[in-house]
Design a protein around this nucleic acid. Sequence first.
DNA 1: GGAACTGTACTCGGATACTATGTGTCCGAGTAGTTCTGG
DNA 2: CCAGAACTACTCGGACACATAGTATCCGAGTACAGTTCC
Lengths: 130, 130
Amino acid sequence: MKYSKATNYALHAMLSLANKTEKTSIGVQSLATELSVSTTYLSKILAKLVKEGLVLSSSGAQGGYSLAANKNDVSFLDVIQAIEGKASLFECDPQHGEHCLVHQVMLEAETEMERQLKQKRIIDVAYQIK
Amino acid sequence: MKYSKATNYALHAMLSLANKTEKTSIGVQSLATELSVSTTYLSKILAKLVKEGLVLSSSGAQGGYSLAANKNDVSFLDVIQAIEGKASLFECDPQHGEHCLVHQVMLEAETEMERQLKQKRIIDVAYQIK
DNA sequence: GGAACTGTACTCGGATACTATGTGTCCGAGTAGTTCTGG
DNA sequence: CCAGAACTACTCGGACACATAGTATCCGAGTACAGTTCC
């Protein structure tokens, strides 16, 4: 069990976007070279972030990506779930049902981690880098 | 990112073993039918638990598996790490190094979850089932 | 001079290929009890 | 009776097959802006 590299790229990309205060959007290319990924792969990752409304994309010349407006409170958890999905980390056999004790313990620990990730905002961390 | 089914099987197997107070070891077969897995696959999982010292195995006739003696304080984390490995869930590119802020945030959340899983002992949960 | 055309720099999204890992099976080998056999 | 051989019920662990998901690339299509052409 590991977080995918895509999550890593997504988080770093978000930090980069957060630090560009200019209104102009940033091309995938500059982000890709910054993160050492191919542009095509990175655009796939960013597409997920767009789909979740965390990032805006504008096509055409001078196009690119930018942080969604009014989204200053985006947390780490938001980005992670946009990439990894919102499914639970642990799933028992459906025959056990919700009252499986193992399931309960695991879910409890998982929500604890999510709580931690939810209170960490992208902007706050981006500010530390700047 | 998800926990593997093997982890699920391992946890449930540990609970079953913890509930058999008898000194006699339990065969893989009875455990396997109980968990609805094949004996061969389950034995592979149990082998990892043996390797980590959480479980004892005795071969030959009347052989089987049993909880390791003096291991009443086995936690959920112990079992999970025996199966999934002890590597960190999140890994940045080595070029970022340890001082990558993303890395730090993720690690912080991860250790929080581990702390939670560490204080949950197998026996305590097994007792609730019994 | 302005409307239409062309070129260019981008993103979008589907199709595809490769790789790693998780899941599961098969089978030979080893081990320890149990039963059988021969003196 | 009893020691040793044969048998049986197990685990152990390597090798293999399969499924799934992550990683990554390629390419055609669409879009917006800038410059050019032509009347």
